[in-house]
Each structure stands twice: as structure tokens, then as C-alpha cells.
């Protein structure tokens, strides 16, 4: 398992691996928001938590089609399916490496972008906490979407269509926690619900993803 994680991380950091693409996308989306809604700092301050959450979600989505498609094309998935490692574990590891290379950098970059959007000072801690708790769920759910569409040519757009509705609860609770925090309210309740969703998806989604992947590899 560690070997797979090590390899995936190494691949992400090598040239052409796509590490940082998600981060750059997040940055650009966030920078574009003031251009589209105007530079009033009060307005930006109000929408900052939501914009940052949506940006993070889209950045995660963007990098999902690399999660399995490359391994499918070069035959690695076939060979992994015959390896002693269960597919459930392999997919969990792949989701973990996706989170480490996409979700985690987003969490770390969010406060900086929060500054640019004039996020209320109270909100930073809540924003980081909600992103740190929520982005793993985005990766795990995304792995399911990737497994569903891996055998389909040009499945990227279809995957977005399938994955985005599944992201709704995570987005609602995550952004709600960040927004309440930024308004100076207590965001503990949505944060706990968010943690529940994340833990639930981490525990259960790999089984669905592996079942689906076995069907597509057939």
C-alpha cells in the first residue's frame, strides 16, 4: 500500500504529473471573482467563504479524471486488479494521494486567498478547519466518480455531471461552517455534520468504487 502511495506521489511531483494544477486553478478562480462581482470589499467579505469553498471543490473536480484514467490506459489497473492488494485498498490509497496532492495544498492556500477576498478575521480558523475536514470527502467521492467513468471515452464531462450532485451535502455543510465562522457565529454543528459525512464516505465509498471498477475492467 505504501508502495502505491509512494509511486502516486512521485508521479504527481514529476514533470507532467499535474501537481499544482489544481492549486493554480483555485488561485485563478478566486482572483477572477472580484472581476465579476466588483471590488467592493464588503460584498467580497460576505461571499468569501462560499467562493473559497466552491473554488476548492472545482479544483478537486478538475484533477479527478487523472485519478484512474492514466492507470487504465497503460494497463496498470488490470495488473493491480490481479495483485494481492484488494482494489478497495488501492482505491483508498489513490484517493489519499489525490487528497495529499490536491486537497491539502488547497487547505493551506485558502487563508492567503481569504486575505485577497477580505475574509473576516474570525473566519480563518473555521475556513481552514472546514476545508481540512471536507476535502477528504471530495477526494473519496471523486474516486467513485472516476471509477464509474474510467472505461468511457471522453468521460471527463460525464464524471463532472455524476460527481457534482454527490458533492452537495459536503459543500453545504463545509461552506455553512465557514460562513457562520466568518459572521462571528458558532459553526460547530455544521462542522460536526461535515466530519460525519467525511468519515462515512471514507469508510463506505471505497467499497462502492471497487465494485464499480471491477465492472468497468471486465
Amino acid at each position: 500500500m505504501i508502495a502505491l502511495l509512494h509511486r502516486d506521489l512521485m508521479l504527481a511531483f514529476r514533470a507532467g504529473g499535474g501537481f499544482g494544477l489544481g492549486l493554480a486553478f483555485f488561485l485563478i478562480v478566486t482572483v477572477l471573482v472580484p472581476f465579476s462581482v466588483g471590488p467592493q470589499s464588503e460584498l467580497l467579505s460576505t461571499i468569501a467563504p462560499g467562493v473559497l469553498w466552491l473554488g476548492a471543490l472545482l479544483a478537486c473536480l478538475l484533477s479527478l479524471d487523472r485519478l484512474l484514467a492514466l492507470d487504465f490506459e497503460d494497463g496498470t489497473l488490470d495488473l493491480l486488479a490481479t495483485a494481492p492488494l484488494p482494489l478497495e485498498a488501492a482505491l483508498s490509497i489513490k484517493a489519499l494521494s489525490h487528497w495529499l496532492t490536491t486537497g491539502l495544498p488547497l487547505v493551506l492556500a485558502a487563508p492567503v486567498l481569504g486575505l485577497m477576498l477580505n475574509l473576516a478575521p474570525d473566519g480563518y480558523l473555521w475556513l481552514i478547519a472546514s476545508l481540512a475536514l471536507g476535502t477528504p470527502a471530495l477526494s473519496v467521492i471523486g474516486a467513485f466518480g472516476a471509477a464509474l467513468t474510467v472505461g468511457i471515452k471522453r468521460g471527463g464531462l460525464l464524471m463532472s455531471l455524476l460527481v457534482l450532485p454527490l458533492y452537495v451535502p459536503t459543500l453545504i455543510f463545509g461552506a455553512e461552517a465557514a460562513r457562520r465562522g466568518a459572521m462571528g457565529l458558532d459553526g460547530t454543528t455544521p462542522l460536526i455534520l461535515l466530519a460525519g459525512i467525511t468519515l462515512g464516505t471514507i469508510a463506505l465509498m471505497p467499497f462502492a468504487s471497487a465494485a464499480v471498477l471491477r465492472m468497468t475492467l471486465r
Binding site: 508502495a3 509512494h6 512521485m10 508521479l11 514533470a15 490506459e73
Partner: peptide
Amino acid sequence: GHADGLKAMLSVTENLTFWAQV
């Protein structure tokens, strides 16, 4: 099978070590 499951951006030993560890 027909595909070798190799990663273009990994060296020969890295590719082989990965499969050995798996």
C-alpha cells in the same frame, strides 16, 4: 497483457521496485 503498466515518468528501477513491493 498487451499493456505493460509502466509509468513514463518513472525510471526502470522505480517501475520495477513498485511492482515488487506491491
